[in-house]
Design a protein around this nucleic acid. Structure first.
Lengths: 123, 123
DNA sequence: CATTCAGGTTTCCGATGGGAACCAGCTATC
DNA sequence: GATAGCTGGTTCCCATCGGAAACCTGAATG
């Protein structure tokens, strides 16, 4: 079968579903080039709950995008690092973050214009 | 304020949340370069419900990424087309789809390996 | 008169996501 | 010696979200 993200029977759909995720984007961007510990990620991504971080990391690990390494320190520290596969995705996904940061102003202006139009219609 | 997707108080977070969406990725990719009607999008993206399509299109319109044009035909036809801003985003998100289609095999292999490791642990 | 097409909206329900609390193991502090 | 703190999670509960299916308007068609 040819990979085709538009075919719901194609597993590509599942992969896309997994990587088109806000938290995954931020985590991959953060880990790019530098392994990071669980709580360090948490601190770097405010608003991300422990639960969702743990789940997201486990999914990314399962997908072969990052590795989880526990060190027998006290307390135990766990380090997450991108795999080569993960690094290739991080580059791709970081473009999304960059787009958001670059075009935020235009998007917000569009939102205000849209909302004004809607308000006029209602009036 | 500097745009910073890692700051939850920054609106960039909202934009990222909106564009890091499976359906938005597929829709933007589909509309790239060619305006498309509501039901044509629906047929091209199996699994996408009318409700979610309508909602997603309205959000993308509000964000200034596409335009909605109704033609007074019978029955009324509605055409959705990317704005220049939307085109720039479509290029970026399409990279995500391409990545998924390119690396699906590696991801699936990683998943099988992971699941086997877990099964071993349990046994 | 019923069906078909267009582009939606409404209703309902199950899955998902966030917040907060809890847990274990060890240490440093009072 | 009790308490608080660090580590990296897990569990519980509730609100929101997404999907399925039904319904809607309005005109043409058989």
């Amino acid at each position: 079968m040819q990979p085709d993200a538009y075919n719901p029977a194609c597993a590509t759909r599942l992969v896309l579903d997994r990587i088109a995720d806000k938290w995954a984007v931020l985590i991959l961007g953060l880990l790019a080039g530098r392994p990071t510990r669980f709580n360090a990620i948490r601190r770097a991504v405010p608003g991300l709950s422990q639960k969702v971080l743990a789940e997201t990391l486990r999914r990314l690990e399962r997908d072969g995008l990052l590795t989880r390494t526990a060190f027998a320190t006290v307390p135990v520290t766990v380090e997450y690092a991108l795999t080569p596969l993960g690094e290739t995705l991080a580059e791709t996904v970081d473009a999304l973050r960059v787009w958001a940061e670059t075009h935020i102003v235009a998007v917000q202006a569009a939102q205000r214009a849209y909302d004004a139009r809607i308000a006029d219609q209602a009036a």
